[in-house]
């Protein structure tokens, strides 16, 4: 597919998912908005260089991530969030519990995934890119993408389970003597 890009249509189609991806990277709404704008600005400047318009989504997410990393190198103030290994043992997560979670809590959980795995998982959920497109975007082998997705999603489940158990009301069973008193 090699026809001219309709920039307005491309922006309309992808800006919201790009913004969410930017938000997961920056954890800041203003910076996410600026990063999204900057990505489309670069697209507008280089749109004539994009030969295969079917790859514009991959190009946008790749460019946004590169811009974010470039900004990081300049600012060097991005908080590094370590994965907490103890939450690997969190209980299984039910669909109802996940539905009850706030969207921002899910986004926050994404940002707590170990950095090695995080970007692949973010792209998987936020861009709906295939594993091949993720491999192309991150410039890593397909097998590595599979491995990172597998480990990253495992961590995400554990983090969400921990988040659910933190927000759930604590039920403490009555002792026998308390039951008798009632």
């Amino acid at each position: 597919m090699t026809h001219e890009l309709n920039l307005e249509a491309v922006a309309g189609r992808f800006y919201a998912s790009l913004y969410r991806f930017a938000l997961s990277l920056t954890k800041n709404e203003v910076e996410a908005g600026d990063l999204t704008q900057q990505t489309f600005f670069i697209l507008a400047q280089r749109s004539h260089q994009i030969r295969d318009t079917s790859k514009v989504k991959c190009w946008l997410f790749t460019t946004l991530r590169r811009e974010f990393l470039r900004t990081l190198r300049v600012q060097s103030n991005h908080p590094h969030v370590e994965f907490r290994p103890e939450i690997h043992d969190a209980p299984a997560l039910s669909a109802d519990a996940l539905r009850a979670l706030d969207a921002k809590a899910v986004l926050e959980a994404l940002t707590q995934i170990e950095p090695t795995y995080r970007t692949a998982v973010e792209l998987f959920y936020l861009s709906e890119m295939s594993y091949k497109e993720i491999a192309e975007s991150l410039e890593i082998p397909i097998g590595t993408v599979m491995s990172r997705l597998s480990r990253g999603k495992e961590q995400l489940k554990a983090i969400l389970s921990a988040a659910v158990s933190e927000t759930s009301p604590k039920i403490i069973p009555l002792r026998n003597d308390e039951q008798a008193a009632q």
């Binding site: 919201a16 999204t36 669909a95 539905r99 986004l107 709906e128 995400l156």
Partner: peptide
């Protein structure tokens, strides 16, 4: 569910 939750975040 995760993908749907994330799309609830509006630009």
């Amino acid at each position: 569910l995760v993908a749907a939750k994330l799309t609830e975040i509006e630009a």
